[in-house]
Simulated scan of single mutants.
Amino acid sequence: MQSAARTRWACRRGMLELDVILMPFMDNHYDNLPEAEQLIFQRLLEGIDPELYAWFMGHEKCEDPELAEMIKKIHKLNGAPVSF
């Protein structure tokens, strides 16, 4: 498992839209996640920006069930409506 500082750095993306989603989640909720979910979040951050953007915006469905649940959790905890 990587450090919180390294995970925080991985949240900084090349797309502002992703920064606006990932950074508040990292700052406000990451430390309260169970270790297993922290690992899933870290795995999510390994994705490429266009793929992450498509998943978070609901343009494409993430086929990985763990990552799809993490995306839903991020939206919910960030206070965004989840319609997919």
Rank of each mutant, 00 (worst) to 15 (best):
M23H: 15
N32M: 13
L45I: 02
L44C: 01
E37W: 10
L18T: 00
Q38I: 06
E46K: 15
I48P: 09
Y30S: 05
P50L: 01
Q42S: 08
N32R: 15
D19R: 13
D49F: 12
E46T: 14
P24M: 04
L33N: 02
N28V: 12
M26I: 02
L22S: 07
A36W: 06
R43K: 13
D27F: 09
E17I: 06
P34Q: 11
G47M: 12
L44W: 01
I48E: 15
N28H: 14
A36H: 03
A36D: 07
L39V: 07
L44N: 00
W55Q: 00
I48G: 13
I21W: 00
V20C: 14
L44M: 04
D31K: 04
F41G: 03
P50N: 02
Q38F: 09
Y30E: 04
E46I: 12
P34A: 10
I21F: 04
N32A: 14
L22D: 08
E37P: 08
Q42M: 06
N32E: 15
E51C: 05
D19S: 10
L18E: 01
L44Y: 03
D49C: 10
W55G: 01
P50Y: 00
A36I: 09
W55V: 00
L18A: 01
D27A: 13
M57R: 06
P50F: 01
R43V: 09
H29F: 15
D19M: 11
A36N: 08
P50A: 02
G47P: 11
F56Q: 08
M26L: 00
F41H: 04
L22T: 04
M57P: 08
E51I: 06
D49L: 12
D19G: 14
D49G: 06
L44H: 00
Q38R: 07
E17P: 03
I48H: 14
L52Y: 08
F25P: 12
F25C: 10
H29P: 14
Y30F: 05
Q38T: 08
D27H: 11
D19K: 12
E51H: 03
L44A: 02
I48Y: 15
E35N: 12
L39M: 09
D19F: 14
M26C: 04
V20Y: 11
Y30V: 05
H29C: 13
A54G: 04
P24L: 07
L45S: 05
L39A: 11
D49E: 12
V20R: 11
N32Q: 13
E51Q: 07
N28K: 14
L52E: 09
A36G: 06
A54I: 06
M57K: 10
N32G: 14
L33T: 01
L22K: 05
Y53E: 08
F41P: 02
D49M: 07
Y30G: 04
N28W: 13
Y30R: 04
A36Y: 07
E35I: 14
P24V: 07
F56D: 10
N32V: 11
I21C: 03
